[in-house]
């Protein structure tokens, strides 16, 4: 090994991150705090997630997760003409996790943040919560058999609590009312110049029924679904991935968790493949969100099917037009047919 490659190795991304984390963790837990077992987790390609323990001077061990922006910003790109996510930054995301936790949503604590400098991108650090995030496993594994019947109620309750966070406490977020949300989806399809009769039908159906959407405006999680929660044997342990959070219609979260794509084949249980809508709405009421008209959930489930379909189409065009060639993105494009199928079953 030449001196140069040895030096490169010493300055590998993991080594550099370890040094930054040791420094910031020492400010939080005291001098002499060590970082142990730093390892990058797979998963979301658009963000980096790292797992590590902070070993404090008194010998205590804090199991932690870092979520930060990717060092290589070209890693995940979508078709340049459109933006499907409202895209909050990592500090806002961390702050939302804290606020949700204070509001009674099961959430990890957020002990510290990383500021973007020459050595790292921006990120936040949260406690590592034990449990399962993969939707399929949550629905199939014996370990979650007792958790599954509780999850619809618990998700409804968590949603009500996050929707109830007072607007004055929230960090700056983008605002999207129902009209804006529909115009956004239509704008993406128009931009792609891709005639799609099924989605047009869905848009028209929604536009003719705007009164069903409800008119409350609150914090919305924006990607509230099976796949973005941590589940343990005892039930819901955390709500993750606040990247799409915005101010909007709260019932959009309740419709999104019901779309068939997040049921992973367990179609008969509308809420995430694990529960019934009535259980979710009882949880929502118990969480202080009030009684929700099931027609509002239905409206937002139709919207959610459309939204996921448009994202699938957009991924295909990210491959077709650019900026990123990818067999995975090309293949996801064809999943739009599944959401169009679901959409057309839901409407009249």
């Amino acid at each position: 090994m030449t001196a140069e490659t040895a030096k490169d190795k010493a300055e590998s991304p993991a080594a550099r991150l370890q040094a930054v984390l040791a420094e910031v963790a020492a400010e939080h837990y005291g001098d002499g705090t060590r970082i142990d077992g730093l390892v990058r987790l797979s998963g979301g390609a658009s963000r980096e997630t790292w797992s590590f323990d902070a070993v404090t001077p008194d010998g205590g061990r804090e199991p932690l997760i870092l979520k930060r922006d990717p060092a290589d910003q070209t890693g995940e790109q979508t078709y340049a003409g459109v933006d499907s996510r409202h895209g909050v930054d990592r500090w806002t995301e961390g702050r939302l996790v804290e606020l949700a936790g204070e509001a009674g949503v099961p959430e990890p604590r957020v002990p510290f943040y990383l500021a973007a400098d020459g050595r790292t991108t921006a990120g936040f650090v949260m406690q590592r919560v034990e449990g399962e995030t993969l939707g399929r496993r949550i629905l199939r594994e014996e370990a979650y058999a007792e958790a599954r019947p509780k999850l619809a109620f618990q998700c409804g309750q968590a949603a009500a609590r996050l929707h109830g966070i007072p607007a004055g406490r929230l960090p700056p977020l983008s605002i999207m009312d129902v009209g804006g949300a529909l115009a956004h989806q239509r704008g993406i399809l128009d931009n792609l110049d891709h005639a799609h009769a099924g989605f047009e039908y869905g848009l028209r159906w929604l536009e003719e029924r705007l009164e069903l959407a409800g008119d409350r405006q609150t914090l919305v999680h924006g990607d509230f679904r099976n796949g973005n929660i941590i589940v343990g044997g005892d039930g819901l342990r955390a709500v993750l991935d606040w990247e799409s959070s915005h101010i909007g219609n709260p019932f959009s979260d309740l419709g999104w968790i019901c779309i068939r794509s997040w049921r992973y084949g367990h179609f008969k249980k509308p809420v995430g493949g694990f529960g019934e809508i009535e259980d979710m709405l009882e949880g929502y009421e118990a969480g202080g969100g009030g009684r929700v008209d099931p027609r509002a959930v239905h409206f937002w489930e139709v919207f959610g099917s459309l939204r996921w379909g448009v994202i699938c189409v957009m991924m295909a065009f990210t491959h077709i037009i650019g900026p990123q060639r990818s067999v995975e993105k090309a293949a996801i494009g064809r999943r739009a047919a599944e959401t169009e199928h679901d959409l057309l079953q839901l409407v009249d």
């Binding site: 009769a197 099924g198 039908y201 084949g265 367990h266 179609f267 008969k268 064809r334 999943r335 047919a337 599944e338 169009e340 199928h341 057309l344 079953q345 409407v347 009249d348």
Partner: peptide, 26 residues
């Protein structure tokens, strides 16, 4: 007639893209 046409068309699309999607697992 319109909705019927759209449903027939998307049924064919799913049949090509992912035929298993049309058979629920439970």
């Amino acid at each position: 007639a319109l909705l019927e046409h759209l449903r027939r068309t998307v049924q064919d699309k799913v049949q090509l893209a992912n035929p298993r999607y049309l058979t629920p697992r439970d």
